[in-house]
């Protein structure tokens, strides 16, 4: 706690100014990055470039927002700053439920379906799974943070290998369909899915905006929150369901990203120095956008190599995770 206290604001007035300044800077940064992303190195017809890049930009914004918000929410209800939905295997759960869907229904049936219906089916399977899992993990007796973390991490590995195993059991043709469905990337985004994604994420965001105070109270931890009239079980499960939706959207669009959410949420906490959701949620979202759009611009336009952004982010995110653990990861 001590080393962190130095960089945190000392008075409420400072705190307020700092948070506002951070939000403004982040917003400006995102705007600049987006402008550069849209214009840098453009050749040929502007109309085409803007439309093409605009689609990509919308996708990046959506992903960044979904990943950052889901991470902050998850950390609020689990009362820690290290665990994220993807470290706990939420995204693996999504991959697994898609795989199981193909395994049981067959690609022929699925290819006839409306992609929106298909996405809804994957989403529902995943949400049910995650509810069952996290009910069991988080709503039981109180337990040590490290055991919980390790359980989550190993569970994530288990889900990933299980998904891989089921994929290996599939017919090679079915597997092709599946990997088409699963392994999108930051640069190849399906417009239909993006439409659904935007609708879902906007709905979740709207709900959040109306419940910021409730989130703050949940963030005080179970005993204090229950005392203040929060119905813990119901509210935590509800928030976890929203997290599932956000993770499903981002995983469907870009595939699993393990440490990105952690990186964005940790940097945002550092930048704003407050835990109020009214500030923290937008800050995390903007930080993630800055990382994603800025990073993509740098990699694509300056270093001219594609899609490695995910890998670079994973690397730095992993390092941040280690630093957090080393600092003691206070609960």
């Amino acid at each position: 706690m001590q080393p962190e206290a130095r960089i945190l604001p000392v008075t409420p007035a400072q705190s307020e100014t700092r948070a506002q300044l951070a939000l403004i800077l982040l917003g400006g940064g995102v705007f600049l990055a987006a402008a550069l992303f849209m214009t840098l190195g453009a050749r040929g017809s502007w109309a085409f470039v803007l439309q093409f890049r605009g689609m990509k930009l919308l996708g990046l914004i959506l992903i960044a927002h979904a990943v950052a918000v889901s991470t902050v929410l998850f950390q609020t209800v689990t009362a820690n700053r290290i665990l994220t939905p993807s470290i706990m295997g939420f995204d693996a759960l999504f991959v697994l439920s898609s795989t199981l869907l193909i395994a049981f229904m067959g690609s022929v049936q699925l290819s006839g379906l409306d992609p929106r219906l298909l996405f809804a089916a994957r989403l529902i399977v995943m949400t049910l799974f995650s509810m069952a899992l996290y009910r069991w993990l988080f709503l039981g007796e109180e337990q040590s943070l490290h055991r919980l973390l390790l359980t989550g991490v190993v569970f994530g590995i288990f889900l990933r290998t299980l998904a891989e195993f089921v994929q290996r059991m599939l017919d090679p043709n079915e597997f092709m369909v599946l990997s088409d469905m699963l392994f999108a990337s930051f640069t190849k985004i399906d417009p239909v899915l993006m439409g659904i994604g935007w609708a879902l994420v906007l709905a979740v965001t709207l709900w959040l905006a109306r419940n910021l105070a409730r989130l703050d109270v949940i963030g005080l931890g179970r005993p204090v929150a229950v005392n203040l009239g929060i119905r813990w079980r119901r509210d935590v499960l509800l928030v976890l369901a929203l997290v599932s939706v956000l993770v499903a959207v981002s995983t469907a669009l870009v595939g699993p990203v393990t440490f990105f959410g952690l990186l964005a949420a940790s940097l945002a906490r550092l930048a704003v120095g407050t835990t109020r959701h009214a500030v923290l949620l937008p800050a995390a979202s903007l930080t993630a956008m800055l990382l994603l759009i800025g990073g993509q611009t740098l990699l694509e336009r300056l270093f001219a190599f594609n899609t490695a952004l995910g890998i670079v982010i994973e690397f730095f995110g992993g390092v941040v995770f280690l630093i957090l653990l080393l600092k003691g990861g206070r609960r």
Binding site: L8, P12, A79, N80, R81, L212, A213, R214, D216, V217, G219, L220, G221, P223, V224, V226, N227, L228, G229, G273, T274, T275, R331
Partner: peptide, 30 residues
């Protein structure tokens, strides 16, 4: 109202902010 003995908070709050949380059951944050 109930208060337990060990009240470690993850959130960084001022005294006034914490005491104001006591009004949540009445005013839902406003």
């Amino acid at each position: 109202a109930v208060l337990r003995q060990d009240n470690h908070l993850n959130a960084r709050l001022t005294v006034k902010e914490l005491v104001s949380f006591g009004r949540y059951p009445h005013s839902k944050g406003r």
